[in-house]
């Protein structure tokens, strides 16, 4: 057999590559389309604003929406200050030594730990050891720790993108290191930090395993009154109605899935838009 010419080989390889990519992209399109197509019919005002009824087979998902909102807010409140400060430490203070290397390794590991192990950790530390019980507080803190790497990585990248010369100028004008960070570095890193926060929101809204033992209630039609209350949450609700309860109409399930997917992808779209704007606007 004659050897193929490089040009023809390239053509064949490139078409195979594009085919593989197409194959890899099909699931995301399919999943989104299937859920929109089947879920749209279930969504109406009642679905979004009432509690589930009749063993969760009818009614709406409001308590789950409210619960997810509480958890996400809590996770952001806990994770953002620590995450942003940690990123400031890594980018502005840390020297290249074993400690910095260890921190980096720790962050990579935090990002890699299984979500259900976070659930165990939250159960062990917050629910039992600190006696928070299964509560919004315990769940939000577990989610916050799980998402710390997201915030740290995004913030660090944003800080690294602020030109070094700005820091030199600020310091040469007699500003202290902290003043330089606060008045020059952080304001110019805000969009990047925002991206990290929004990504955290998206992840915290979608996670199930970490809240399974730390906060989520199977069925709890009321609203929380304190951070020590349990709540329902969207992903947990979807899990419950798709595996635990027989004879639930598909439209209720699809509707819940659509709301969850809508929240998560909507939030992600915001990130994409911010990033595109940022790239166009950057002046220095």
């Amino acid at each position: 057999m004659k050897k193929l010419s490089p040009k023809i080989t390239q053509k064949i390889v490139f078409s195979l590559l594009s085919l593989a990519t197409l194959l890899a992209m099909v699931p995301v399109v399919l999943i989104v389309l299937i859920i929109i197509k089947n879920g749209l019919g279930a969504i109406n005002w009642e679905f979004l604003t009432t509690a589930p009824r009749n063993g969760m087979r009818e009614g709406g998902i409001l308590p789950a929406i409210v619960g997810t909102f509480c958890l996400v807010t809590g996770a952001v409140v806990f994770a953002v200050p620590v995450g942003v400060f940690a990123a400031i430490y890594l980018n502005e203070y840390a020297k290249k030594n074993w400690l910095t290397r260890l921190i980096r390794l720790a962050i990579i590991n935090l990002a890699g730990v299984s979500s259900v192990v976070y659930g165990l950790f939250g159960l062990g530390l917050f629910v039992i050891f600190l006696k928070f019980g299964a509560s919004i507080l315990a769940g939000a803190m577990t989610l916050a720790i799980m998402n710390l790497p997201v915030i740290i990585t995004a913030t660090r990248e944003a800080l690294a993108n602020v030109p070094q010369s700005f820091r030199e100028v600020s310091l040469s004008l007699g500003a202290s290191k902290w003043q330089t960070i606060w008045h020059v570095v952080l304001p110019n890193a805000i969009p990047g930090i925002l991206t990290g926060i929004i990504l955290e929101i998206s992840r915290a809204a979608g996670e199930t395993a970490p809240i399974l033992f730390t906060v989520a209630a199977f069925y709890l039609p009321g609203f929380p009154t304190s951070v020590f209350d349990q709540v329902m949450a969207l992903p947990m609700h979807l899990y419950a109605i798709s595996t635990q309860i027989p004879n639930i109409g598909l439209d209720v399930r699809y509707g819940t899935a659509l709301v969850l997917l809508g929240v998560v992808l909507g939030v992600n779209s915001v990130v994409i838009i911010i990033r595109a704007r940022l790239r166009r606007r950057q002046k220095w």
């Binding site: 010369s165 030199e168 040469s172 007699g174 500003a175 202290s176």
Partner: peptide
Amino acid sequence: RKIGMIFALPIPLPMSIFDNIAYGPRR
């Protein structure tokens, strides 16, 4: 503050002219 420095390339901070000049005194 006592020993000021002018760099090779002009580097205005990304803020207004006023704020650039008021930066040092404010800090």
